[in-house]
């Protein structure tokens, strides 16, 4: 006889994230927000198989000019330590260069997340020069130093183009020691397994990218794939969903909870609505439980309110845990 999950289980023997927290005497509540993450849209030149947003060329949701104005005004009202711009592929959003420049006026540290191919194929050198002049920090996706693994996750030919773009960025000073221009790499596993330990992976990426391609970078961050969107569909279709959720849940580490990014971040979607993290955005769970538009807020989201959770939250609490800046140290 096949066992069935109870109300506090996501599958037989695996507790829901909220009941898991409760069993450890923990509650997930917001802390002081230090980072504003802005998801400028789901349009992307790639259709990566691990994408929790199911972003791709067929998605046309992008942030418009009015929303950009509301977001930059909000960033100016609230002195966040960091603003983090992501997508989709932010490079494809009309007006993105001006948007970044405006954000850089009010916030000291501006991060820009790129899949490298969008930067290579859809932007001219002037954008990189402008980012460099503004001191924008780049976070570039590179799942593997193996072309086969990278291409299987992100699409045919992506690895080669990514390496070519990394070389160009190095040429512009990004990732070069002493330049002050940070080029960080982000690596997600190419399948239903956990990422390599961040420190060991960084050592290997640094050694092999330098040896094979003459590429340098600042730091590498590893992330577990989050079971949402296109990745969850693949997990279900390939028969890996149950085992993957079980693996993530089995790796639950209560020590990671205080450091989770959802506690110190405010995330704005392409329409201007607020979420606790990019994964709750993908799952459609708004900050505070009901939709709030950025134009309605004068300050950061209040500390102490509960963060909505789902089974995918186990991806951030497995092992050493993961945040927007990679594994929790």
């Amino acid at each position: 006889m096949t066992a069935t999950a109870t109300a506090t289980e996501i599958r037989p023997g695996v507790r829901t994230f909220s009941s898991c927290l409760a069993s450890h005497g923990l509650a997930l509540t917001r802390d002081r927000a230090t980072t504003l993450q802005i998801n400028v849209g789901l349009n992307c030149n790639l259709a990566c198989r691990h994408c929790h947003h199911s972003a791709g060329p067929g998605r046309h949701e992008v942030m418009g000019t009015e929303t950009m104005k509301a977001v930059t005004a909000y960033a100016a009202r609230v002195a966040f330590d960091t603003v983090d711009v992501t997508g989709g592929a932010p490079e494809l959003v009309p007006g993105i260069a001006e948007f970044i420049a405006e954000l850089a006026r009010s916030t000291k540290r501006v991060l820009f997340r790129t899949n490298l191919v969008a930067l290579h194929d859809h932007c001219d050198a002037a954008l990189v020069e402008r980012f460099a002049a503004l001191g924008v920090t780049l976070f570039a996706s590179l799942p593997s130093i193996n072309a086969g693994q990278a291409d299987s996750q992100r699409g045919s030919g992506v690895f080669e183009t990514s390496v070519a773009m990394l070389r160009r960025l190095n040429g512009a000073g990004y990732g070069v020691a002493g330049s002050g221009l940070e080029l960080n790499l982000v690596a997600n596993p190419s399948g239903a397994f956990l990422p390599a330990a961040q420190q060991a992976a960084e050592r290997r990426f640094r050694q092999e990218l330098a040896r094979r391609y003459g590429v340098a970078f600042s730091s590498l961050f590893t992330f577990a794939n989050v079971p949402l969107g296109r990745f969850r569909e693949w997990l279900a279709a390939s028969g890996n969903l149950g085992d993957y959720l079980e693996k993530l849940a089995a790796g639950f580490n209560p020590c990671t909870v205080p450091g989770l990014m959802c506690r110190r971040q405010a995330v704005i979607d392409w329409r201007g609505y607020l979420f606790d993290c990019d994964f709750n955005l993908a799952a459609g769970l708004p900050l505070g439980g009901s939709p709030i538009h950025v134009s309605e807020l004068n300050g950061p989201p209040p500390a102490g309110i509960a963060v909505p959770t789902g089974d995918y939250c186990y991806a951030c609490t497995a092992g050493a845990g993961f945040t927007c800046a990679g594994a929790i140290s």
């Binding site: 593997s144 193996n146 086969g148 693994q149 596993p189 399948g191 397994f193 956990l194 990422p195 390599a196 330990a197 060991a200 992976a201 290997r204």
Partner: peptide, 13 residues
């Protein structure tokens, strides 16, 4: 097999 993938090895290796 799982351990190798999780430690960053690829199918070629």
């Amino acid at each position: 097999t799982k351990s190798c993938l999780e430690k960053g090895s690829n199918l070629g290796e």
